[in-house]
Each structure stands twice: as C-alpha cells, then as structure tokens.
C-alpha cells in the first residue's frame, strides 16, 4: 500500500468512527441544550446499552440491527423514568446536585455491570462482521459504513422531531425559557424527562450500530464519554450540527494521531483539543450562547 492509501484509509476510518462519536455526542448535547446540565451517566448508559445488545444476541439470538427499534424504545423509557423519578427529585433543581447525582448513577451502572459480567471483554459474532466494500484502493468495513449512514439518519430524525413536532416545539421552548414555557402550559418536568429519554435512545442506537464491529467491557463507556464531551464542547453545547461536525472532526483527529503518534499516545490529541477549546472558547466553535 502507498503511504497516501494508508493516510486515506485512516481518514475514512476516522470519519466512520467519528459518525458514531457524533451519535453519542448528540444525546449529550441534546440533554445539555435543554436541561443545561452535563449528564455524567452518559458513558455508563452507553455501556449498559452495549451489554443489552450483547445479551440480546448471545441469549436470544437477535441480530443487533433487528434489536435496534426495541432497544431504542426500552432505553427511551428507562431514560424517561430515571430523569422523572430519580435525577429530578434527588437534585432539588440545583445544577451541581444534578452533576453529582448523574455521577452517582454512572458509578452504580458501571460497577453493577462489572459485578454482573466481570471485567472480561466480550464481543458478538455476526456473519457480516468482516465484510468489506471496495472503494478505489480502500477497503471499507460494511458495518462501519452502516453505522456512518445510521448516525446521519438519526441526526436527521432528531432534527425533524425538534423542528416539526409539537413535542419538539415544547422541548425548544423549555430550552430557551422554562418559566415562560411552564406559564403557557408546557409540563416542564415531562419535557425534561422526554429529552433525557431521547438522549438514552440515541445511545441505544449507537450501541446497536457499534456492536457488530466493537467489543464491550464494563469500562468501555468511559472511552466514549470523554470523546463525546470533547465533541460537545467543540461543537458548542446544545448544537446538533455542531455535534455532527465535531464528531467527524474528532474521529479524524483520533485516527490520524493514532497513525502518527502510536496507539497509546493517540488519544492524547483529543484531550489536548478538549482542554484548549475549554480554555480558549468554552462556548465551542459553533455555539452561540455564553
């Protein structure tokens, strides 16, 4: 292979990984945009969703792509209930309390999974796991291409929901001015919970798209969540296009710095971007609000 081909294939892999990062970041940015809090349980929820896909395949023999609609619905319901009956009441409406409650939830989920599944790394075996599509000199993994396309479909659906439906209008109203929204009859607690549920459903979709090519262990969510935070900060907290572009950018940076710096130092590129963006422009490159 020519060096150019190596570079291009790293780029393509970065873009495909970046789309899944974007999907994880979409849930985070949506919750931030509406509730103005950072959901620290996001990574652990992704881990839980990946185990759900694993169990569905290993115990029930359900293909990840077929499990997608059901799992998305289940995680929407779980997210709704957790926000409505745990996070909301426990935090008394105080931002730093929400931070701590979601941190507590993430500790519980991560370690309950560790206790239940032990620290072994697991993966599922699907017939199309190693199939590739040939584009020029590049071999692109089919499941990764599906994940790439799937992420854009979810982003488009989310955008449609927010822009075209009554629920979407209510979510946007609560994000902008929750007192005003409450005055005109929007049930703020309900909308908070719906938003949280949507964030969790995004993770269930991400898990179904990831599992054919990825592995799962109880700590896997951490790897994603810091990347997702980076994307959200980079793209501007609460911005959907920002999350998409930020996700693709971070995917490429990770892939290229892995190529040039080696596997163990590869991740550092992401954190350095993260710290620099936080220090220099915390509203993100696309964020409007301060």
């Amino acid at each position: 292979m020519l060096p150019l081909d190596i570079f291009l294939s790293a780029m393509a892999n970065g873009l495909m990984m970046g789309a899944v990062y974007a999907l994880v970041a979409l849930g985070l940015t949506l919750v931030y945009g509406v509730l103005h809090i950072i959901n620290f349980a996001h990574g652990a929820t992704l881990t839980a969703a990946m185990y759900a896909v694993y169990v569905a395949h290993a115990a029930l023999g359900v293909d990840p792509y077929l499990a997608l609609p059901g799992l998305a619905a289940i995680f929407f319901a779980l997210g709704y209930m957790v926000q409505r009956w745990v996070i909301g009441p426990a935090s008394h409406g105080d931002d730093s309390n929400i931070l701590l409650v979601t941190l507590g939830l993430s500790i519980i989920m991560e370690n309950a999974l560790l206790a239940g599944f032990r620290s072994d790394t697991r993966s599922i075996d699907v017939p199309y796991g190693f199939s590739v599509v040939e584009v020029g000199n590049l071999f692109l993994s089919t499941p990764k291409l599906v994940a790439f396309a799937g992420s854009f479909v979810v982003a488009a659906l989310l955008w449609l929901l927010l822009a075209r439906t009554d629920t979407g209008r209510a979510i946007r109203a609560v994000a902008k001015e929750k007192t005003g929204a409450a005055l005109v009859g929007v049930r703020v607690e309900h909308i908070y919970a719906v938003t949280f549920g949507l964030g969790a459903a995004c993770l269930a979709v991400a898990a179904c798209l990831l599992m054919p090519t990825f592995l799962v262990n109880p700590r896997i969510g951490n790897a994603f969540v810091l990347v997702a935070f980076t994307i959200v900060v980079l793209g501007g907290m609460g911005s959907i296009p920002g999350a998409l572009i930020g996700g693709l950018f971070v995917g490429v940076v990770e892939s290229l710095s892995g190529l040039y710096l080696g596997e163990s130092l590869g991740q550092i590129g992401i954190f350095l971007i993260f710290i620099l963006v936080l220090l220099a422009r915390p509203t993100g490159l696309f964020g409007a609000r301060a």
Binding site: S91, N97, V101, I107, N111
Partner: peptide, 20 residues
Amino acid sequence: PGVDLVVFGVLLILCVAFAP
C-alpha cells in the same frame, strides 16, 4: 468486583437527595 462502588454510588445519590 465492583459491589463496594455500587454502594458508594447509592450513598452519593441518597446524600444529595436527603442529606445535603
């Protein structure tokens, strides 16, 4: 493994909720 940390997480949420 991990059960002690599950207890920590539960304690954290209980404290934030009932014993600020």
